[in-house]
Simulated assay, not measured.
Amino acid sequence: MPCGIKLVIEDYPYAADGLLIWSAIKDWLESYVEHFYSDPNSVTSDVELQSWWKEIRCKGHYYKRNEPWWPTLDNKQDLSGILTQCCCKLWTISLGRSVFLSSLPTQLQATKVMAVEDTHSPDEEYLGQVNPEYSRWINDHEILKLFNKFSARLEEIQEIRISA
């Protein structure tokens, strides 16, 4: 796999697809962080960023705040890794709806839930997409270029899934 992980069960499409998407998210966030944090000390000197990370650890996970496994936020690689984990966790959580629906006991009940759950907000955004109404807020052409590259990579992954 592009992210350097070998699957134990090679014929497991969900995991293979997930690793491809994880890799695309990781590459996008690394380029994004590199764009905004070009100076080697810029991550440690960003007071708001450091406060955000401290709040996640110390307030958001109060009972786990002293665990030794928390990553440090000392450089661009740390920041990219933390952001990748956050985004991939959110992406994985959003997939939970299909697991929920598959656990319903009857087709009728599943249909009722799908009728409610499958309604989408008109301004709903999907991974790799930006609502055109909000894209005008982004005036950094380099960031738009990086995001478009990420979107194109997700489209390539979608094609891989369809052809498999």
Rank of each mutant, 00 (worst) to 15 (best):
P105F: 04
E117G: 15
P105N: 05
Q107P: 07
W91A: 04
S163P: 12
D27H: 11
G96V: 05
T92R: 12
P2A: 12
W53S: 01
V8G: 07
V47L: 15
V43W: 11
L49W: 05
D74F: 01
A164K: 12
L108P: 09
D11P: 05
E155S: 14
Y37E: 06
D11S: 00
L154M: 14
E124R: 05
R97V: 01
L108R: 13
S102M: 08
L95N: 02
A152T: 14
E30A: 13
W69L: 04
L73G: 02
L83P: 01
E34R: 04
Y37K: 10
V99F: 09
E156H: 13
Q85L: 03
W53R: 03
S31N: 09
V43N: 09
W137Q: 09
K89F: 15
N41L: 15
L90Q: 05
E55F: 04
K112G: 06
L127Q: 02
P105T: 01
Q109T: 08
R161N: 14
G81H: 02
E10G: 11
I56H: 00
V116L: 15
Y32K: 10
E67I: 03
Q77R: 06
E55R: 11
G81K: 02
L73C: 03
C58K: 00
I56C: 00
L108D: 14
D39A: 15
E124K: 06
K149D: 12
R57M: 00
E34L: 14
R136L: 10
L154A: 15
G60I: 00
H35D: 08
S102G: 07
Q109A: 06
L29A: 07
N131Q: 05
E10Y: 08
L127V: 04
V33C: 10
P13N: 03
G18L: 05
L95I: 02
N139S: 11
T84G: 04
Y37M: 08
S45D: 08
L154Y: 15
L127T: 00
L29F: 11
Q107C: 04
I5C: 07
R97T: 06
L101V: 02
L20E: 11
E125P: 07
P68N: 05
Y37N: 07
Q129D: 11
L146T: 11
L95Y: 03
I21M: 10
S94M: 03
G60H: 00
N148H: 15
D123V: 07
G4E: 02
S80A: 11
D39E: 15
L20S: 07
W137S: 13
Y12W: 14
W137H: 10
D118P: 03
S42F: 12
L127M: 04
V47D: 11
C87P: 12
A110K: 11
S98T: 07
V47K: 09
L108F: 11
F36L: 11
G18H: 07
L73S: 00
S94F: 08
D46M: 05
D17P: 10
E30F: 11
L20T: 03
F100T: 00
S151Q: 13
C88N: 06
C87I: 09
